[in-house]
Design a binder for these strands. Structure first.
Lengths: 104, 104
DNA sequence: TCGATAATTCGACATATTTCGAAATGTAGA
DNA sequence: TCTACATTTCGAAATATGTCGAATTATCGA
């Protein structure tokens, strides 16, 4: 997961998807902010194929979810992933691997 | 920082240093667990030069502190780094760059 | 069915990363 | 001062990553 976040383009994509709810609100899967692949690439000077490659890496790492919605593919972050990641840096929390996460 | 944590050896080193205090205890700089370079490499089948290289990368990323203590060099994590990193994954927290952190 | 739009797969290439061993540096103790 | 120990610096080599353009797949609407 950290390897996936270690690339500037992928980190930016992840950050765009991270702002999943308004301040004072609690995040849930339904409220999770969603962007299509094309929208995520806006402002990033990167070829479509490269963008696709990065999204695949993020998904493969278990960081983002993807689902086709008509012509486009929507991406979002499961709030549980954010909680797990946050907990990783808390010495009091015991870290466990997350579902779709690709561990070698 | 995530790029630095993205390597399995470096992540292991970071995790060893992360358990900075006992459950129920609050972490502080004094209580931070410290390991020498040699101790950190124990059990990792890696050349000393490679270990040194990884430690340098972690330090350069602002993840660990290093200080010579006689013949050896001690390493530890500033608890503030753990809090910052934890906060990065909290949508309610505004993330700011940390002191020694190397941003490009 | 055909064309347009959205995204992915593939192959190629330049650049980065990981790793090692040999040599160098810094420190403590005999 | 000389030696042993701990660690770093310096190339060099193998492997991995990031990037692109061209071709392909999937879906919608005329």
């Amino acid at each position: 997961m950290f390897k996936a976040l270690g690339n500037p383009h992928r980190l930016l994509i992840f950050q765009r998807l991270s702002r999943c709810c308004q301040p004072g609100t609690r995040c849930d899967l339904e409220a999770a902010i969603r962007f299509s692949v094309g929208e995520l690439g806006e402002g990033m000077e990167i070829a479509a194929s490269t963008l696709s490659h990065h999204l695949k890496a993020l998904h493969h790492a278990g960081l983002i979810e993807m689902e086709r919605q008509g012509k486009q593919i929507n991406c979002w972050i499961d709030p549980a992933v954010l909680e797990k990641l946050s907990g990783f840096f808390d010495p009091q929390t015991e870290f466990e691997n997350i579902g779709g996460c690709d561990v070698r």
